[in-house]
Amino acid sequence: MTMNNLIILVEALWQSGIAPALLILGIGWLSARFARNKRLTALLGIAENAVNWAEVTFDGGQTQKAQAIKMITDYLMKADKAHLFTAKEIDDTIEWAVKEMKEGTVK
C-alpha cells in the first residue's frame, strides 16, 4: 500500500464518519478509565485512614475489619459516593491497606 492509497483510505474513513466515531469512542473509553483510577486512588486513601483507626481503636481482626468497612461505607454515604464502589472493591482496598501497613509503607 503506497502512501497515497493510505491517505485516500483515511480520508474516506473520515468522510464516512467511521474515523470520527472511533475517535469519540476512544476518547470516552480513556476518560472513563482515568476517572475510575482517580476514584480508586481516593478509596485507597480512605481505606488507609480507616484501617489505621480500626487498628488503634479495636482488638481482634474481624472486629477491626468490620469497623473499617463501616467507617468507609459511612464516609462514602455522606459524600454520596457509595454507588461508585462495590463491596468487593471496598474489601480489596482494606486488604491492601492492611498489607501495606504490615510492610511499613503506610503509617
Score class of each variant (00 low, 15 high):
Phe58Lys: 04
Val10Asn: 05
Thr41Val: 11
Thr93Cys: 07
Ala19Phe: 06
Phe85Leu: 06
Ala50Pro: 03
Asp80Lys: 15
Glu100Leu: 05
Phe85Ala: 03
Trp53Gln: 10
Thr73Tyr: 03
Gln67Ser: 08
Leu76Gly: 07
Lys102Leu: 08
Glu48Gln: 09
Met77Arg: 12
Met71Cys: 02
Ile72Asp: 00
Leu76Asp: 03
Ile7His: 05
Glu48Arg: 11
Asn37Ser: 13
Lys65Gly: 06
Glu100Gln: 13
Asp92Gln: 07
Ile24His: 06
Ala66Lys: 01
Glu95Gly: 06
Asp91Trp: 09
Glu55Gln: 11
Met101Pro: 00
Val51Gln: 02
Ser16Met: 09
Asn37Leu: 12
Asp74Thr: 08
Thr2Asp: 10
Val106Arg: 13
Trp96Phe: 14
Gly60Thr: 05
Gly17Ala: 09
Asp74Pro: 02
Ile18Lys: 06
Thr73Asp: 07
Lys107His: 14
Ala35Arg: 07
Gly26Ala: 14
Ala35Val: 06
Glu48Cys: 04
His83Cys: 07
Ala19Glu: 05
Leu9Phe: 15
Trp53Asn: 00
Gly28Phe: 15
Phe85Met: 08
Phe34Asn: 14
Thr73Phe: 01
Thr105Asp: 05
Thr93Trp: 02
Val98Gln: 04
Ile46Cys: 00
Arg36Tyr: 07
Trp53Lys: 08
Glu55Trp: 07
Leu30Met: 15
Leu6Met: 11
Met71His: 08
Asn4Ala: 14
Ile90Thr: 02
Glu103Lys: 15
Leu6Gly: 11
Thr2Cys: 00
Leu22Ala: 09
Gln67His: 07
Val98Ser: 02
Met77Glu: 15
Met101Leu: 13
Glu11Asn: 13
Phe34Glu: 15
Gln62Gly: 01
Phe58His: 11
Leu40Pro: 03
Val10Cys: 10
Gly61Ala: 09
Gly17Gln: 08
